[in-house]
């Protein structure tokens, strides 16, 4: 395999890992107990994808790094995830906006990858079912909140405005934005939300340039592992 294959697996693995880490922060904090169960399911799916992708990246790299070495022993600038997934959770509306935009992107991407061959296609074939569920969960909530109370409408509109700029990075070097918009725009319309204007388009995640919120996320995620060099868990 080429280094491109490694970079690709690493980027997708990092996206899933950081999205899982953020989603898991909701545990014991969800607006309803049923939703606690649902969000934990989504976090588990994402974490499963991350483990498969990072293990595969490690194999491609051939330096003996496994999922844990890649997750716990890299610094901020070595992570290749998009900035969208590292954004703090905010309120439930922001989390659903992040999930909607990210899951639909994953769904489109994984459907494409599943059509290929090799280990990545197998990982994508499993993940595409999971991401379809995540996208549907986020869709239903976006519509409920957008078309719920005045308060929830206001929060949901604010949430998509906040997250929208970060969606551009998902499509750098790809032509999938059209397919993504074709799925996202009807959801926003159903939710009686105004589709945000394109404009500012922050970027850098794929090159290891992250937001300020990312350092604390990694510090928390990695510190126990790093405090005991070489230990097994």
């Amino acid at each position: 395999m080429t280094s491109t294959g490694f970079e690709q697996a690493l980027a997708l693995g990092d996206d899933a890992l950081i999205a899982a880490q953020r989603m898991a922060e909701w545990c014991a904090r969800a607006p309803e107990i049923e939703e606690d169960v649902a969000l934990a399911n989504i976090a588990l799916d994402l974490l499963g994808q991350a483990r498969a992708l990072l293990s595969y990246a490690g194999e491609l790299e051939g330096l003996g790094r496994g999922e844990d070495e890649l997750a716990y022993l890299r610094d901020e600038h070595e992570f290749r995830n998009v900035q969208l997934v590292e954004l703090p959770n905010g309120d439930f509306a922001v989390t659903m906006a992040k999930l909607l935009f990210f899951a639909v992107h994953q769904q489109v991407l994984y459907a494409e990858l599943a059509g290929g061959d090799g280990p990545l296609a197998a990982i994508a074939a499993k993940a595409v079912k999971e991401t379809a569920y995540h996208a549907s969960h986020a869709t239903l909530w976006t519509v409920r909140l957008g078309d719920g109370t005045a308060e929830s409408h206001r929060r949901m509109q604010q949430a998509i405005e906040h997250v929208w700029p970060y969606t551009h990075e998902l499509f750098e070097g790809s032509d999938r934005r059209g397919a993504w918009l074709a799925r996202v725009e009807p959801v926003l319309a159903d939710a009686t939300l105004t589709r945000p204007q394109d404009g500012w388009a922050p970027t850098g995640g794929r090159r290891g340039v992250h937001t300020e919120a990312f350092g604390p996320l990694l510090a928390e995620m990695q510190y126990v592992h790093r405090a005991h060099p070489g230990a097994r868990w």
Binding site: L17, C27, D36, V37, A40, L47, H225, H228
Partner: peptide, 23 residues
């Protein structure tokens, strides 16, 4: 509050599944 700090990805998955069961 330990999920985010679990020292391996497998332990993290197990802990999420456990706390989810409690819900």
């Amino acid at each position: 509050h330990w999920i985010t700090r679990a020292p391996s990805l497998q332990r993290k998955a197990v802990l999420i599944a456990k706390v989810q069961d409690e819900a």
